[in-house]
């Protein structure tokens, strides 16, 4: 009986001492963690794509709370969660413009002229170092899909040797931009629906020889709607504040089909018919 009592007393005493010790250390060495960091981490997409420039979603959340990082740097966050995060921080949600990536090329294997049969590593950067792959055009998409493999959201499709970004899947993280050896990919506001899908700085006739779908700077579009286009040398770009509609594009009827709507460009069989 006494043995049991002694055992119980020792255990109780030990528990008490350890309890006090734990309590003390918890107070003394407490790490101040803002509960909001965890909440915000939960609300972020969790893809750890790195598009915001931080080491991942958790790191970004910490930076938001502690160093007042800009929430809108996260392009993948949904509108709803974005508002919730703003609420947690007690800030105005503000206007956040969604951005998507666009590959400025429409020269797939049918349209772009073949220079040679490329045989080697299935990697755009490696091909670029080696005569630039199989297409004649030195500015266009090599089409070996380095960007598609880099994309965490599966938004880039390689169709017939051409990278096509599906804007509904694209989160605008911008990871694909650096990997493209031709610097063809740019982030644009998700609202812009019309682009000139060509990036070649060659002279018109050279371009025409190299690719059926090149912008040959005929300026048909510029003459039709002067405000919405911006011609630089042999390349025309749609201005950012243009409000072109699909109908106008159809009326302009770009002769090579380089001027196209996002919907038509990404549609499943646009490659075969050319522009509307």
């Amino acid at each position: 009986m006494t043995n049991i009592l002694i055992a119980a007393a020792v255990l109780a005493l030990l528990g008490l001492v350890l309890g006090i010790l734990i309590g003390y250390t918890a107070k003394r060495f407490a790490v101040e963690a803002d509960p909001r960091i965890e909440e915000i981490t939960e609300l972020l997409p969790g893809a750890n794509c790195g598009g915001c420039g931080y080491a991942g979603c958790a790191d970004f959340a910490k930076e938001i709370v502690e160093n007042d990082a800009n929430i809108s740097s996260c392009s993948a966050c949904s509108e709803e969660n974005f508002k919730k995060i703003a609420e947690i921080l007690g800030k105005e949600a503000g206007n956040r413009e969604k951005q998507v990536a666009v590959v400025y090329c429409s020269g797939d294997n049918h349209k772009a002229k073949r220079l040679a049969r490329y045989n080697g590593l299935n990697d755009c950067r490696a091909a670029a170092a080696l005569s630039g792959g199989g297409k004649t055009c030195r500015f266009g998409c090599i089409g070996l899909g380095s960007c598609a493999r880099r994309c965490q959201f599966g938004a880039i499709e390689i169709r017939n040797g051409l990278a096509i970004v599906h804007p509904e899947l694209c989160e605008g993280c911008g990871n694909c931009i650096d990997i493209c050896p031709r610097k063809l990919i740019r982030l644009v506001p998700a609202t812009s629906k019309i682009h000139v899908y060509c990036n070649s700085l060659e002279k018109g006739p050279v371009k025409r020889k190299a690719c059926e779908a090149a912008c040959i700077a005929c300026k048909k579009c510029v003459r039709a709607v002067p405000d919405s286009f911006n011609a630089q040398g042999f390349l025309v770009r749609v201005t950012e504040d243009s409000n072109l509609t699909e109908e106008t594009i159809r009326e302009i009827a770009c002769p090579t089909g380089a001027l196209d709507t996002v919907a038509h460009h990404t549609a499943a069989n646009s490659g075969k018919e050319g522009a509307a």
Partner: peptide, 9 residues
């Protein structure tokens, strides 16, 4: 395997 191309890269 295209080893040399890998190494160049």
């Amino acid at each position: 395997r295209p080893n040399v191309q890998h190494f160049r890269r």
